[in-house]
Simulated scan of single mutants.
Amino acid sequence: MEKNLRVLVVEDDAIIGMDIEHRVKKLGYEVCGVADTAAEALEIASSKKPDIALMDIRLRGEVDGIEAARMLRDQLSVPVIFITAYSDMKMRSRALDIDPLGYIVKPLREVELRKTLEAAEEKVRAG
């Protein structure tokens, strides 16, 4: 039996972060940490080794979620799914440049989260 996908949640709003964590667990995935800054995300990812990160574009601190996703990918080989309220073309284009496994626009809908996580899990498992 394969282990559950380990998910890192990176979200600047604590209540939304808890909501995403709850939804991910409800879908049967393991949440290995919740971060609200790029530095915290890198720290958790270094120690907990997530399979994937759910990344908000706006984070606390000077480094945004797109750059944090790039660092996770380049330094730790952790792919991301963006979950964001930003849907303007410039931001979306910048986010898609780092080849995420998905891009979900808030408000978060559980069916969309499930489908995106399932597709991402297939890609992660396939290598």
Rank of each mutant, 00 (worst) to 15 (best):
P79A: 04
T37I: 05
V78K: 01
T37L: 08
V63P: 11
V63L: 10
P79L: 02
I52F: 01
G33V: 11
A35D: 12
D51K: 01
M71Y: 13
G33N: 11
A53Y: 08
K49A: 13
A39G: 15
R58Q: 14
Q75Y: 03
R60C: 12
R73I: 08
E43K: 14
S93A: 14
T84H: 11
D64Q: 01
D56S: 05
D97C: 03
R60F: 03
P100M: 02
D74F: 00
G33S: 12
L96V: 02
K48C: 15
G61R: 10
D74T: 06
A68Y: 00
A68D: 01
G61W: 09
I81F: 05
R92D: 06
R92H: 06
I44Q: 07
G65A: 07
M91P: 01
E62Q: 07
D51T: 01
L96K: 09
I52E: 04
I44H: 06
Q75D: 15
V63G: 09
A69G: 13
I83P: 01
V63I: 15
V34G: 08
S87N: 15
S87K: 06
D64F: 00
D74P: 00
F82D: 09
E43Y: 10
I66E: 09
A39Q: 14
M89L: 14
P50E: 11
R58P: 03
M55L: 12
D56E: 07
A53H: 12
M91G: 00
A39V: 05
I44N: 08
A69L: 02
D36T: 13
E43L: 11
G33F: 08
G61E: 10
D64S: 00
R94Q: 15
